[in-house]
């Protein structure tokens, strides 16, 4: 990997330097814009409702309300919901990735009839609007006795993320070199061995990418949880956010605090996974 860091070995002309300067200026400005929401969220979390509305979003809170965090943690029930969010997300992401990889592998590397049909089935599944599914899904889970059971959430997250994950993986699988796999076939490897030992590791950067996307979706989801779960003990952190929305009053400071608490774990995992995107880098980038 390192030997490829040849960078721009060309001599730098002044014009090029100016161009780079402008480029960096733009990059930095955009970066600041992208960081602003985090700052805004943090400020929001320290404000009273009165300060949130009718004042400039830049305005600093008069006296920072750290108690918003205490409110969020206890009144919003975050302490309880947090762990649920974590394990629903992990289980669903892992299931989705492995199932989607299986399917994509079969669709792009294996020989069989009905490939087109199966692919179309997955693509169409991506197109259904969420609100059309709620009543039928509730019925299905109800018949299976899965209402108020985390299995319904895991199943929903996994299934509804499958189509988009398969489609993204598909794009990558198509452009990945097949030589190693072909060589392995020649050597008499079994399909499973090829999949687990060659293809899956080779797609690590892509898996990291889709893992990030899946994780964000699952972490921020609340419609399924609200519909299929009724006990407090199975609810997730986004429900905590919504606990501060009332009919006549919404406690925005506490919502801000909840959002800050809830964004931290995925921010950390994201930064960690984000490095995997390049580290796994073209594991099988075979010559040619």
């Amino acid at each position: 990997m390192k030997e490829k860091k040849i960078l721009d070995s060309k001599p730098r002309s002044p014009l090029r330097q100016i161009a780079m300067g402008i480029l960096y200026f733009i990059l930095v400005v955009v970066a600041l814009l992208q960081l602003y929401p985090l700052v805004w969220l943090f400020l929001l979390s320290l404000k009273t409702n009165q300060e949130v509305f009718g004042m400039s979003p830049f305005a600093l809170p008069k006296s920072p309300r750290w108690e918003n965090y205490i409110n969020a943690w206890f009144d919003g029930g975050i302490n309880q919901y947090f762990f649920n969010s974590v394990w629903y997300t992990i289980v669903a992401v892992v299931l989705t990735l492995i199932l989607a990889s299986f399917v994509t592998f079969a669709l792009t590397r294996m020989e069989w009839k009905f490939k087109g049909v199966v692919l179309a089935l997955f693509m169409i599944a991506y197109m259904i609007p969420l609100h059309s599914t709620l009543i039928p899904l509730f019925n299905i889970y109800n018949k299976m006795n899965l209402i108020d059971n985390p299995v319904s959430i895991i199943l929903s997250y996994t299934t509804f993320n499958l189509p988009i994950t398969i489609m993204i993986l598909l794009g990558f699988y198509q452009s990945l070199p097949r030589e190693i796999e072909e060589a392995a076939v020649m050597d008499g490897c079994s399909v499973h061995r090829i999949f687990f030992r060659i293809t899956l590791p080779m797609t690590a950067p892509v898996l990291a990418t889709t893992a990030i996307i899946n994780m964000i979706y699952n972490w921020n989801e609340f419609v399924f949880v609200n519909t299929f779960i009724s006990s407090e003990k199975w609810k997730t952190i986004t429900v905590g956010v919504n606990n501060f929305v009332g009919q006549y009053l919404t406690d925005w400071g506490a919502i801000g605090a909840t959002l800050v608490i809830s964004i931290l774990p995925i921010l950390i995992v994201y930064l960690f996974l984000s490095d995997r995107i390049i580290e796994g880098l073209v594991a099988g980038s075979v010559k040619g």
């Binding site: 394990w87 289980v91 892992v94 299931l95 895991i154 687990f196 590791p201 690590a204 995997r276 796994g280």
Partner: peptide
Amino acid sequence: KKKAFTWLVLLMLMAGIVLS
């Protein structure tokens, strides 16, 4: 590292199944 990642994924999967 690649191998470690694969194992991590598999481990998480198993943990997930057990947990659920």
